[in-house]
Structures are given as structure tokens and as C-alpha cells.
């Protein structure tokens, strides 16, 4: 498969120069390679998007997909996998989508160890709504909804994912294509809940490209305790002492929700179900 087969004819409406273009290039590269290596077929890939700038990727990727509601990407992923465990489900959310509207679903997605890859475009701002504070915005940030400085502290999605039971947790930078696509590939190949947070600075409302590039350093996976410690090394603030760990924090194996529930490709196994419901009714005689 050529990577161009993943492109649709829909005009792209991300801002010119948006870091989402590079993020999508990373996704396309990972998917193309996995298809060409015979790990998955193109048809197995099914995307799920929330609402926000990130979600436009639904229209730009020539893959089956579900354009859902704001914050509800994880439950839709769960439904898809419970209906057909053979699908390779890629969820896309922004930081507002995943951690404001959809916070509880994010935690449960990790806890369920659903066999799906959750890709989170984190630009620390609501962009499509023209610039408001999100749960990963640094304290004191001046945004359109916090003109006098944000009163909130950010949450750390990496420690949250680790503590919630995700079995693959990584952070990458949208503009580092080789590492981004390599980590995405690993995440997609991982069996279980994989969370990849992608630092994806918004060039219009919060351009921190230089800051991220300057402060990030690569890490290697470790055990859970050390992974949490490493993740705590950056609490989403912006100061000179900041060091931003990127790479795979943690990877482990655990039975998936689909395995534990024991689901099937229902519509293929039972194109028609022939139940003897009379036998059930007989219990009431």
C-alpha cells in the first residue's frame, strides 16, 4: 500500500502550518508500514474521533471511521471492540475532548485495558472554539475564558494513564516524525489499552513549538513506579527549569476487556440467530 491511499479528497481546513499535518503524517506512516508488514489490513483500521480540531482527521484519513461526540471517544471505541474484536481501533481526541468533557471515560478506557490505541492531540488549549483554558493548560495562563489568568492547576495525563491501568503509555512531539511514527506503530501493535499523548502546539492560539523542542528529552520504558516518577518530572508548567520527557514510559501485558468479556464478531458468527425462545418461556409455565 502506498501512503497516498490513506488520503481523501476532502479539502483540509486546519490552519496552514498546523502541527496536526505532521501528526497525521505520523499516523499515516505508521498505518502504511503496519499494512505493508502484514500486521493489519487497511480495512481493519477504524478511527473514532471526538469534536475539536483533532477530529477533522476523520475526514482526512481514508479509513473507516466514527465521528462521534465531544468527549465520548473511549466508549465508542469500547462499543466497536465489543462488537468486533478484529477491528484495529484508533481513537483521536484533543486535550479538551479527553480530559475535560471525557475525563471519566479516559480513566475507564485505561482501566478496562481495551485493545485500542488512543491518540491524544495535546495543545493545552481549546483551539476550534478560538482559545480557552483546558485541563492541561498551565496555571495562570491568559486565555479568552481566563483573561485574568487561569485559576486552575493542570492534570498530568501520563501519570493518570499509568495509575489507571493503561498497558502502553507514551508521549511524543508532533514535529518529530521519525520518533512519532515509530512510537505510534508500537502503540498500534500493542495488545491492550495504548495511550499516546502527542504534544501538538497550536500555532494560532498557543505556539510553544520552540519551548517544547528546547525542553524535551528522550526516555526509555521502565517499571510502573519509575515510569510514574519520570512522568511527574513535567507537570505541564512553563518555566526555564522545565524538562519534558518524551518516548515510551511503560509497556506491559494484561488481558484485554474483549478477552475477559469473551466477545465475538457477532454479525459474522450469527448472521441469523435461531433461538428456541419457547424453552425460555417454558420456565414460566
Amino acid at each position: 500500500m502506498n501512503v497516498t491511499e490513506l488520503t481523501t479528497k476532502v479539502p483540509n481546513t486546519w490552519c496552514p502550518g498546523c502541527t496536526n499535518f505532521m501528526l497525521m503524517a505520523g499516523v499515516k506512516k505508521a498505518v502504511t508500514e503496519l499494512v505493508n508488514e502484514g500486521v493489519f489490513t487497511k480495512e481493519q483500521f477504524t478511527t473514532v474521533a471526538g469534536i475539536g480540531c483533532h477530529a477533522k482527521i476523520y475526514d482526512y484519513l481514508n479509513l473507516s471511521g466514527f465521528y462521534g461526540l465531544h468527549g465520548r471517544v473511549p466508549p465508542v471505541m469500547a462499543g466497536l471492540k465489543l462488537a468486533n474484536p478484529n477491528l484495529k481501533v484508533l481513537g483521536f481526541s484533543g486535550d479538551g475532548d479527553a480530559f475535560a468533557e471525557g475525563m471519566s471515560h479516559f480513566i475507564h478506557f485505561c482501566r478496562y485495558n481495551l485493545d485500542a490505541t488512543y491518540i491524544i492531540h495535546n495543545n493545552q488549549i481549546f483551539a476550534l472554539t478560538t482559545g480557552q483554558v483546558t485541563p492541561t493548560t498551565e496555571p495562570g495562563a491568559v486565555t479568552k475564558s481566563t483573561p485574568h489568568g487561569s485559576p486552575f492547576r493542570p492534570i498530568n495525563p501520563i501519570t493518570l494513564a499509568l495509575e489507571s491501568g493503561a498497558t502502553f503509555v507514551a508521549r511524543e512531539y508532533a514535529l518529530d516524525l521519525p520518533n512519532l511514527s515509530e512510537t505510534l506503530k508500537r502503540a498500534m501493535k500493542h495488545k491492550g489499552a495504548s495511550v499516546v499523548e502527542i504534544l501538538q502546539p497550536c500555532i494560532t492560539f498557543k505556539d510553544v513549538r520552540d519551548f517544547v523542542k528546547d525542553k524535551m528529552f528522550r526516555i526509555e520504558p521502565s517499571d510502573l513506579e519509575n515510569a510514574v516518577k519520570t512522568a511527574r518530572g513535567w507537570n505541564y508548567t512553563k518555566d526555564d527549569a522545565t524538562r519534558i520527557p518524551v518516548g515510551v514510559f511503560y509497556e506491559t501485558q494484561y488481558p484485554t476487556l474483549e478477552e475477559k468479556v469473551g466477545v465475538k464478531v457477532w454479525h459474522e458468527e450469527f448472521p441469523k440467530r435461531e433461538h428456541k425462545v419457547e424453552e425460555l418461556w417454558a420456565r414460566f409455565k
Partner: peptide, 13 residues
């Protein structure tokens, strides 16, 4: 939302 995901996946939900 999960039920609609499952329905898209082909399940009777």
C-alpha cells in the same frame, strides 16, 4: 455512545 459504536461495528444492541 458505546452502544452506537457497537452498532456501527455490526452488533444488535
Amino acid at each position: 455512545n458505546g452502544a452506537l459504536g457497537a452498532s456501527f461495528g455490526g452488533s444488535t444492541v
